[in-house]
Design a protein around this nucleic acid. Structure first.
Lengths: 219, 219
DNA sequence: GAAATAGTGTCTTTTAGACAATATTTG
DNA sequence: CAAATATTGTCTAAAAGACACTATTTC
């Protein structure tokens, strides 16, 4: 009925490593662009994948071993020139994960590169990545999104530091905590403190039922 | 290489009619769901359509006669159960247009129905519409988006009224104008006033170069 | 107790909201 | 000039920002 269309999912997987925002890139096994670094991605399998989100979860699991981190549809990139095989559509997703989950599983299957100094990537993967970085930064200005770059439990200072790294701004400690308090998406982990060389800090985690929290104003 | 996937575009076309937010629905000519009201949509034509945005523009033009109103990608809906023909992906768009453009062209090819009292629609078109309404309302709280529901020139009172209809809230005249002034996406149309039974009002239009303007805070 | 970080409080500045006052039309 | 709407100004209340102060830990 229709000429065949290539439909894929691609994933921009963010993490914060050494205080720098980075993404996961894989070396492609086959043509086109074999052996080049590219975003994790793959075909949709209509028999296996309930929908494109399930396809993204499957691809992420197969290529990086990760299970259900924060994963959200980004945008669908399409057209006749983005893939040498013909007209294609890529339903792009972005994901956030704490670095420890990557290190735990790493058998050098992927590379971590800073988003600000990426090489030329195949297809329109630079464009997809730029779109994802913009979305991450925009959404981080008014939501609890950056929480997902941290481990399950974290201190308020670590959370503030994460916002500062992602947004590349500095925030006032007092104002930051006041705004967090207005929302109510965090809860203290009972009797859990981050120990350091000085005064220990209370550990917090996302409330179990908490959806992505939105600030009225900008963070 | 891959089992065949159906890829379509669907469009949620909004307008404000008699102070009510409505969308355009067309009666389907063929199966599945022949003769039922549904969102304007159609297959992507890889030979003709540069990308999915171009496909959406073409579909909109062919089905409603409209040329390039405000048109933005919404979300891609996909899966094995949304279309009886098999696994499918619909790249959904939403568009805003002033009512006059619909009336000018109307040969009863489409119907206008209020978003709050829609009938059961085929496929997952109710879900797509709900998603579009949410996006429109969310984005209207912090941007100049509702301007596109008005004709090219409009008064500030008309613009305020449009925000109030879309968001279903009432706004203070003075505060509203102060916030508009902070941005700068409007310009007065020289010597153009809306005449009524009382004091005429200055007409404004979007600045020629103006992109979608964003308020720091909520509108 | 000095140093370092955690956590809270207070004052000032900015912004939003309520509402009044003035301005310009028509009949 | 009364009525109606446009447009601007002012006062008050709320929020954000800057910054200082107190608290708790290690060495």
């Amino acid at each position: 009925m229709e000429s065949s269309l290539i439909v894929t999912v691609d994933i921009v997987l963010f993490t914060l490593s050494s205080d720098v925002l980075k993404i996961v890139l894989l070396r492609r096994e086959r043509d086109p662009y074999a052996h080049q670094l590219a975003l994790p991605g793959g075909y949709i399998h209509p028999e296996k994948d309930r929908d494109s989100l399930a396809a993204a979860e499957r691809v992420l699991q197969q290529k990086t071993g990760l299970v259900s981190p924060y994963l959200e549809q980004l945008f669908t990139f399409s057209g006749g020139v983005r893939d040498p095989r013909g007209w294609s559509a890529s339903i792009a997703y972005y994901a956030l994960v704490h670095e420890s989950l990557l290190i735990a599983d790493a058998e050098h299957r992927f590379e971590l590169l800073p988003v600000d100094v990426l090489p030329d990537l195949p297809f329109d993967h630079n464009r997809i990545t730029a779109h994802a970085v913009k979305r991450l930064r925009d959404k981080s200005t008014y939501s609890s999104l950056p929480c997902h770059l941290l481990p399950e439990a974290f201190t308020l200072t670590e959370l503030q530091h994460t916002y500062e790294q992602v947004l590349d701004i500095s925030l006032d400690k007092s104002v930051f905590r006041r705004k967090l308090g207005e929302l109510d998406f965090l809860e203290a982990v009972p009797d859990a403190m981050r120990q350091g060389k000085h005064r220990p800090a209370q550990l917090y985690r996302l409330r179990p039922d908490a959806k992505l929290a939105l600030f009225n104003k900008t963070m």
